[in-house]
Design a protein around this nucleic acid. Structure first.
Lengths: 245, 245
DNA sequence: GCCGATTTGTCCGTATGTATC
DNA sequence: CGATACATACGGACAAATCGG
């Protein structure tokens, strides 16, 4: 698939920022310069810059220019960022991933599951429980609920490889947005059974509802991380007034 | 301050979504309809919709329309979202805030502080330690480092009221972006001294570097939350290919 | 302080592509 | 196939902020 022009510009600038072609705190060329350089309109450059801004790479300053504010981070822990499969995250963190499927079942949502996951009572689901290891060390316990209608054909084999690869490449599902909530919860017996927690008595927990490009929620996941190997990153921009986002 | 047109449209649509004028999973009017309705160009509508999309309110579907995917969340814990002062967060969570200043000092950054906060050695800083309570219950311990150059005039009195109000309204500072990292850390003696942790032996920790509109980092904060009253929310959108953001 | 050049911010109208129905 | 809807891209206009002379 040929990429959109703004996306190529975005990637090119991102690369230049990450490799410090532009230094930290340095000004990028003006929008007009970039437009000339890339042979496109100013609007197209602005679109690429907007995405860099949202990602915390640059900071536009009215009347002055656009400043590079990207600083590389040290990667000691397992860093969670955008919507990624475990395999992709492991790759980005340069760790060897391994997945063990602990449970694989087809279930029907009851009232309790509806309240928890958002799937209506009576909906057919796959329920998967997996233990994730990085460099041989078990760190994450995943509980997944997948909407069977949209993920038909899931098997334990796929669950131990990559569900997202299967959904996107085999089923042609387009994963779009994910609403995530991060909390800290007490360890459960299952946590203790599979993960070496030292003396920690709690886990970092990410619960997420993920939607496809039709706006249909096809996944609910609770991902329980060993606390000392967990790190979540985020860039926020300030919105004044209103009720707040 | 007169608001931009796209911002008024954004707020209006957000309001209509939150009050369920548009039902969950309902289609919004088409972009052309909205443009006609608001008396603006389609581009302006698209800008408002883009922000709603980024906030997880709607999901645009190529060739079909724009779907409302907003679901209100229950607010049992203290929910952290965008860049907000403690006062603003408390308001949004409908709790009574109270702040006790435990320490207030003017310091100079040394190597250790530089490594931790990103402020260069030799930089003049304010260091503030505060205990935050909601509805009379102490829940959060904040350690702030403010760049003195940009926050001159800070006092313990301001620290117990609202630093952000002071910075924005008195000093005219414009707070723009914040890079945040979320981890789970062991409790410290200070945590235990001020916060009733039951038998929890860890805290939810948000560290953030905050920038003004000149791209200057003026704040480094470590915010330590009692785990059972902590909740962090986020909406992510999927980016395929590349190295991943 | 003023003026003009530069730069980002907002908004418009239009054209074309692509997906859905 | 045609109508509708979102996606991308262009070019232009003007506003607002900044900076140098």
């Amino acid at each position: 698939m040929p990429r959109a022009k703004y996306d190529r510009i975005y990637r090119d600038l991102k690369e230049k920022i990450e490799t410090e072609f532009y230094a930290y705190q340095e000004m990028l060329p003006s929008e007009n310069m970039l437009a000339a350089e890339y042979g496109c309109s100013r609007n197209t450059v602005r679109r690429a810059l907007a995405e860099l801004t949202a990602g915390g790479y640059v900071q536009p300053m009215h009347g002055k220019g656009v400043r590079n504010i990207f600083q590389p981070i040290e990667q000691t822990a397992f860093t969670v960022g955008g919507i990624e499969s475990f395999k992709e995250s492991a790759q980005r963190n340069k760790k060897q991933p391994f997945t063990k499927v602990l449970q694989f079942a087809e279930i029907t949502a009851d009232d309790k599951i509806e309240k928890k996951t958002g799937f209506k009572r009576g909906t057919a689901l796959y329920y998967i429980q997996r233990l994730r290891s990085l460099d041989g060390r078990p760190l994450i316990l995943d509980h997944n609920y997948f909407l069977k209608d949209l993920t038909r054909g899931l098997t334990p084999e796929i669950a131990s490889a990559s569900v997202y690869d299967f959904l996107e490449e085999e089923l042609g599902l387009t994963i779009t947005t994910s609403k995530r909530t991060l909390t800290v919860e007490r360890v459960t017996q299952i946590d203790e059974k599979y993960i070496d927690l030292k003396d920690y008595n709690c886990m970092a927990v990410i619960t997420s509802q993920t939607y496809d490009d039709n706006g249909i929620q096809f996944e609910y996941t609770q991902s329980r991380h060993r606390p000392d190997y967990f790190r979540f990153q985020d860039v926020a921009t300030r919105r004044r007034g209103g009720t707040g986002a």
